[in-house]
Each structure stands twice: as structure tokens, then as C-alpha cells.
């Protein structure tokens, strides 16, 4: 079938502002939007630039706004998004070129929440024991691939990028609720900052945007509760 893609272009070496460009291709309904973009790049316009790697929703490279909604281009089939598709870079982060944005501010927020295992007790010879029940408490948030769909769909993040963002909170949640980890207190303190969890207004854009179907808003709420009950 014929598919028309209206893509936001921007070349930092030539353009003063982004502009729209339309391309038409032949595609199957089961083709991914990424397949379409790569086809345009191979056959029509080699300057079209985007990030991509695994092409099946596991690496998180190709987060984009497709028809106005944050999605992974490799998980969006034309049979879902239709044959008149708008493609733009994710919002809230500086655009470098075409569909590529600067992920550094996002990564910095991620690094700031101590997103690593903390346990200073000498480890046992074999594995630390953990019940399946305890593991399930944080299993959701281990699925995060740092694609940025959640944070860049959050209106609060659009208003102020000082907000640590849903992704960072999800990554912190993964450790706060891991029974083997001992760093909860430090992370909860970091997140209790005005630009931490409190900036979340429970808008739910993040939960809708997450390609891994993580219940992001719920995870953030669990962290808020945890902070509240540990302070009171």
C-alpha cells in the first residue's frame, strides 16, 4: 500500500529552524515505521537521520513522536498508525538533527538517582537469597530500556527540564523496592527534592507512552508513598 510520511527535518549545518517534508513509499501493513524511514533513507534521501539499532523494541534507540504520540518506531506497524503518518523527534530535549535529540540531559537525570545496586555487606559465597515474592515487587521497573518515551511525554518535563523525570524515578524504584538493596534512604532523599517526585501531577502520559508497558505512574506513586511513610 502507499504510505505518506510527513517528517520533521532539521540540518544544524544549514537550517535555522525545523521544517516538514513529505515522502511517499510502498509498504506492507505489517511493516514498521522504522522500516519506512530506513527505506526512505536508502532509496530517496540518504540525509534523513535517526537513531536505530535492534529494530524490535528492546534497545530503545528509536523513540519518536508518531502521529503526535511517543512510540518506538520499530514497534509501530503501519496497520496501526495508518498510511498518513507524521513523524517528529521526541519533545523536551534539544534536537540535534532530524529525528535525533540530545539524550544527555535525560541520561544525567538517570545517573543522579544512584541507579545501581548498593549493598555494603560482604556478599555470601553463592547468591544472596531472595523470594519470588520479593522479586516481583520490583520486576515491572526492571523492564525499563531508557528509551525516553515517558519523560519526554510528560508535560511537567516540557515545562521544566529540571524535573528528574519518570524514567529516573522508575530506575530508582527498581532499587528502592529490591529487598537486597540497602540504598533506599539515600535515593528517597534525592527524590524528595522539589524537582524529584513531587513534580509528578499524575497526568499519566508516561504510562501511556511506555513501550514496555510499565505502569510508570503507579511506580512513581509507590515512591511518593514510601517517602511519606519513611518521613512520618
Amino acid at each position: 500500500m502507499q504510505v505518506t510520511l510527513k517528517i520533521q527535518r532539521f540540518n544544524p549545518e544549514k537550517d535555522s529552524a525545523p521544517y516538514w517534508k513529505e515522502y511517499t513509499i510502498e509498504a506492507e501493513p505489517t511493516d514498521r515505521v522504522l522500516d519506512g524511514l530506513l527505506k526512505i533513507k536508502l532509496e530517496q534521501d540518504g540525509t534523513l537521520t535517526m537513531r536505530s539499532s535492534c529494530a524490535h523494541g528492546i534497545c530503545g534507540s528509536d523513540a519518536m513522536r508518531i502521529n503526535g504520540v511517543n512510540r518506538l518506531a520499530c514497534k509501530s506497524l503501519f496497520q496501526e498508525v495508518g498510511n498518513n503518518v507524521t513523524v517528529e523527534p521526541i519533545a523536551g530535549l534539544p534536537v540535534i538533527k532530524d529525528l535525533v535529540v540530545d539524550m544527555e540531559p535525560f541520561m544525567e537525570h538517570y545517573r543522579s538517582v544512584l541507579p545501581f545496586f548498593i549493598n555494603d555487606d560482604p556478599p555470601p559465597e553463592k547468591e544472596r537469597l531472595q523470594s519470588e515474592e520479593d522479586r516481583l515487587k520490583f520486576e515491572e521497573t526492571t523492564k525499563c530500556i531508557l528509551c525516553g518515551c515517558c519523560t519526554t511525554s510528560c508535560p511537567t518535563f516540557w515545562a521544566t527540564d529540571a524535573y528528574v523525570g519518570p524514567a529516573a524515578i522508575v530506575q530508582a524504584h527498581r532499587f528502592i523496592f529490591d529487598s537486597r538493596d540497602q540504598g533506599s534512604a539515600q535515593r528517597l532523599e534525592i527524590l524528595a527534592d522539589p524537582d524529584g517526585v513531587w513534580r509528578c501531577r499524575t497526568i499519566f502520559n508516561c504510562t501511556n507512552a511506555c513501550p514496555r508497558e510499565i505502569k510508570v505512574t503507579e511506580a512513581i506513586a509507590e515512591v511518593k508513598k514510601e517517602i511519606l511513610f519513611s518521613k512520618l
Binding site: 545501581f116 545496586f117 549493598n119 556478599p123 559465597e125 553463592k126 547468591e127 544472596r128 537469597l129 531472595q130 523470594s131 519470588e132 522479586r135 520490583f138 520486576e139 526492571t142 532499587f175 529490591d178 537486597r180 538493596d181
Partner: peptide, 23 residues
């Protein structure tokens, strides 16, 4: 191999668990 798997677990890797809590 067992050594390296235990090390990954000590780094926090969330392995699935048996009813006894082992990997």
C-alpha cells in the same frame, strides 16, 4: 561459570528464583 553468575547476582542482577530463594 558459577563464580561469574554469583558475581552478577552480587551486582544486583534480578534472577528468577526457586521457592528456596536461589537462582
Amino acid at each position: 561459570a558459577p563464580n561469574v553468575v554469583f558475581e552478577l547476582e552480587h551486582m544486583g542482577l534480578p534472577f528468577d528464583r526457586t521457592p528456596e530463594g536461589k537462582i
